[in-house]
Design a protein around this nucleic acid. Sequence first.
DNA 1: ATTTTTTTTGCAACGAAGTTGCGTTTATGT
DNA 2: ACATAAACGCAACTTCGTTGCAAAAAAAAT
Lengths: 138, 138
Amino acid sequence: MEAQIDTILKSNHLSVTGGRRKILELFLSNPGALSHSDIEKKTEEKFDRVTVYRTLQAFLEKGLIHTIPTADNSIRYALCKDNCSAGHHQDNHVHFICSQCGSTLCLDETTIPSIRLPKGFVAARVEMVVNGVCKNCK
Amino acid sequence: MEAQIDTILKSNHLSVTGGRRKILELFLSNPGALSHSDIEKKTEEKFDRVTVYRTLQAFLEKGLIHTIPTADNSIRYALCKDNCSAGHHQDNHVHFICSQCGSTLCLDETTIPSIRLPKGFVAARVEMVVNGVCKNCK
DNA sequence: ATTTTTTTTGCAACGAAGTTGCGTTTATGT
DNA sequence: ACATAAACGCAACTTCGTTGCAAAAAAAAT
């Protein structure tokens, strides 16, 4: 596990530091997406707020994580299978937000159906977010 | 136009005030979605920030506008055809965010396809957001 | 049309969220 | 082990959003 984390960081051209190790570990051990405040809580405020912000930004830039659009104002970050291994950013799967437990999940097996846009529109990325009740909360 | 605005407000059980008239007018004359800061700019800060927040909240509650999920941190509000006329909230259409001009549009004719969720998951609301280049910017 | 009641507004104060600059510390490559 | 480069923590600051309250405006009632 330890070794795996360092390998992921290095292969993404990220320096290996305590904060990044810990935050990446959180993503790996968590089934769903994490918000900034989730991370602060789970690390017991061991790291400065700014460090967490900058770490997330670094992970984003390297394509390790991606953001999930939400209707409320919270940015959620998720580490998806594709991104961990390969460097390319390909996450055309559906995201699920549970209104009960609040967790955000990547439904890796549920792919986004292709849609027909009006004439003149060109799609670069399509996001699909489902709100509802998850498996565990039903 | 003036009369139309007042009618919409009244039929949604909203008091007719200067601020609400102006903000509703903005939504009607704008093709896409507006953020809070968009509104502040376009009204030239004529109204207090708090008033704008409360107006948007009131419009939301009455179903006049709805929010559009975005991956960045900005809440965008849009007034859609269905909501203006009828009171019921029905927006199962796709939203489009142009990476060029930044405008957010409701693709009213493009409906969200139904998907098959994994066992145990129950959907309450589905959102679909397309990022790309819009008709005008191509 | 005037008064009463209800709603909305602006102000001030506050709290949360996110950013920037800078000196210090830590990691990396040779 | 050392020089270089990157990341960290701190402080200060901006932006965003909320709440309470008194004044003003709109709606309802007389």
